[in-house]
Simulated assay, not measured.
Amino acid sequence: MSLRRPTRFVGRGRGITLRQVAPNAVTAMALCFGLTGMRYAMSMEWERAVVAVVLAAVLDGIDGRIARMLHGESRFGAELDSLSDVIAFGVSPAIILYLWSLQAMPRFGWIGALGFALCCALRLARFNAQIDVADQPLKLAGFNMGVPAPGGAGLALLPIFFWFSTGWDMARDWRLVLPWTLVVAFLMVSDLPTMGWKRFRVPPSLRLFAIGAAGIIAALLLTAPWPVLLALALVYLALIPIAWVSYARIRRQRARVRDGAA
């Protein structure tokens, strides 16, 4: 009597490890926060709606770092991250802005909201198309091409931050909100260099000061979130022309090096 070996089922894998699941779970949480922001906007709970988008941005900022720390990067995670970003930072802010202000615009308010969501989707599609391209001068220099999706959402919601901070109803006027929304949409799909995390360097002598400042900002976010978020959005906006000037200087330096080598 011969013994038969156990049958091996083709196509049944060994499963995936927790280190691969964890970053994708964080990305899924960000997507759910973005959807929840829309839910609160529909019931006109504006603060909760904006908080949901902010929390989605926080999760979006850490999911990639968790993946690299756990060596759990995957193409699936990259695609899920882009889909999450479209929902949380394109569709959700567009719905919030429309219900908060743009619906008061005759006929074309919805077109402005659609334009913002569309530009966010186009930006992320461009990012996915270039994800395997090694020669990206902006990325190699530590810059982003255009405003990233989370930054675009934060800038788009700047009028709401201002409204929460001051109570000034003019900030809700669609005549101000619509042009601002379209400007931010353009910044997301533009080729303008914007600051990436790699461009920020803390001198060793200021390390303790930077850690203390981060702690104070975190405490202020809990006690006075809207003025702090407004200030952060304005600082990021001010960094855009600084990034443009900085990258122009780097390009000139590279050109001089190439001319010298020739």
Rank of each mutant, 00 (worst) to 15 (best):
A210S: 15
H71R: 15
F143L: 00
L80A: 12
L102F: 08
R5K: 12
V91A: 15
I87Y: 04
F76E: 02
G13W: 05
L122M: 14
M170A: 15
V53G: 05
G34L: 07
A153K: 07
V184D: 06
V228W: 05
S246A: 15
E79Q: 15
A153R: 11
I131S: 14
W46F: 05
D259L: 12
P148Q: 04
V235K: 02
G112P: 00
V183W: 09
R19N: 09
R68Y: 06
G260Q: 11
L237G: 13
A153P: 03
L18M: 13
C120F: 03
P179H: 08
E79W: 02
A261R: 12
L158P: 05
L83R: 10
L155I: 04
Q20M: 06
L206S: 13
D63I: 03
W46K: 09
V228S: 10
L70Y: 01
A67G: 01
A67D: 03
L157V: 00
G260N: 12
L114I: 11
L182F: 15
W163V: 01
A104H: 13
M145L: 11
V228G: 03
T181R: 04
F143D: 08
G15F: 10
R5L: 10
N24F: 04
R65S: 07
R258G: 02
W244M: 15
S84N: 08
I95S: 01
G212L: 13
P225V: 04
I62M: 13
R207W: 08
V26P: 02
V183E: 06
P225N: 11
V133P: 01
P227L: 05
L122Q: 07
M195N: 02
I216F: 06
L234I: 06
W226S: 03
V10Q: 12
R207T: 07
P148F: 10
A121G: 12
Q136C: 00
L155S: 00
D191I: 01
G212Y: 05
A117N: 08
I96H: 00
M38I: 15
A224L: 11
S43G: 09
A28L: 14
T7L: 14
P93T: 03
V133S: 09
S74I: 01
D85G: 06
L3R: 13
R14T: 15
L155R: 01
G112L: 00
L55T: 12
G13I: 05
W174G: 02
V245I: 15
L192E: 00
D132Q: 10
M42K: 09
W174H: 11
W100Q: 05
A22F: 14
S84K: 12
L192A: 10
L140P: 00
P150S: 04
L99R: 12
A255K: 10
I96L: 04
V50S: 00
A41R: 01
R5A: 11
F89H: 08
R175A: 12
L221G: 08
D169I: 09
L124Q: 06
R126K: 14
G77Y: 05
G90K: 06
A67K: 07
V189N: 04
